[in-house]
Simulated scan of single mutants.
Amino acid sequence: MIEIRAATEQDVEVFYKLMLEEAEHHNALQHIHTSPSEIRRAGFGKDPRFGVLLAQFDGEPAGYISYTVNYSIWLGAEFMMIDDVFVTAKYRGRKIGEALMARARQVAQAAGHTRIRWGVESNNEGAIRFYQRLGASLHTKGLCTWEVGDDPGRH
């Protein structure tokens, strides 16, 4: 059975392991610069900077969505910005991604947001079909990053 719930501070280690699993899946472990203690501080303190929805299948960790809340000047409103959508290989094909996205939609609506935004790799055709099946629109736009901190190796 699928259960989707908001992560708590007690879930930090589980969430971090899922993050590492996702990064490994994308051959991107070198881009993980955070730690469980930073996740705990930034996500579960007095003023959380992000949210996490955890998926469990029969009580086992199966995936997550991480998100932030941003403000759109053009919309004149806050919106949910999804960072990651990930389902472990063991649980793919069991509608967990669908359940995670449905719960994200509920969270956004409950907060008064009228939009959810996220990125997808242009060559990830399976994910694009999945998101379009949910009713999402795909907008082609370049993504730029500009490293401005002291450590140019951080992304």
Rank of each mutant, 00 (worst) to 15 (best):
R105S: 13
Y67N: 00
M81W: 12
Q132P: 03
G51P: 02
L54Q: 05
I116A: 07
E78G: 08
A104F: 11
G119P: 01
L75N: 11
A55V: 02
N123A: 09
Y67M: 05
G51K: 06
Y91M: 10
L54M: 13
W118A: 08
T114N: 13
Y91K: 04
I128V: 12
D83F: 03
A102M: 10
W74M: 06
E98Q: 15
M101S: 03
I82M: 10
F79G: 07
I116D: 07
I82E: 13
E78N: 14
K95W: 03
N70G: 07
F79P: 05
P48V: 06
T68C: 13
W118G: 10
E78A: 11
Y67S: 07
L54R: 03
G59T: 04
R103N: 10
A77P: 07
K90G: 08
V85L: 15
A108D: 09
V120Q: 02
A102Q: 11
Y131D: 07
Q132C: 11
R105L: 12
A77Y: 09
R94T: 00
A99L: 08
D84A: 06
M80P: 07
Y71D: 10
G76W: 09
G119H: 15
F57L: 07
T114I: 14
P48R: 09
R103C: 11
A104C: 11
I73F: 08
A104H: 09
S66K: 01
Q56F: 15
A102R: 13
G97R: 06
S72D: 11
G112R: 05
G76K: 09
R115P: 01
T114V: 13
M81L: 15
I96S: 05
G112C: 10
A62P: 01
E98V: 09
Y91F: 14
R105Y: 03
V120C: 10
V107L: 08
Q56E: 15
Y64N: 01
M81D: 14
T68P: 06
R105T: 14
A111D: 13
T88W: 04
S122M: 09
R105D: 13
F57M: 09
W118Y: 13
M101W: 00
V87T: 04
A127Q: 03
Y131H: 12
P61N: 08
A55D: 04
N70T: 09
F86C: 08
R105H: 09
I116M: 15
G76N: 06
K95F: 02
N70P: 01
A99N: 02
D47M: 05
G51Q: 06
M81A: 14
Y64M: 07
L75C: 08
A89M: 08
V85Y: 06
W74Q: 01
A127P: 04
L100T: 05
D58F: 03
I96E: 04
Q132F: 02
Y67P: 00
A102P: 00
A110Y: 01
E121L: 12
P48Y: 12
F79Y: 15
E125P: 00
R92W: 10
L100Q: 06
G126N: 14
P48W: 11
R103S: 11
N70E: 15
Q109Y: 12
G63H: 04
V87D: 00
E78S: 14
G97W: 03
T114W: 11
Y67T: 00
Y67H: 08
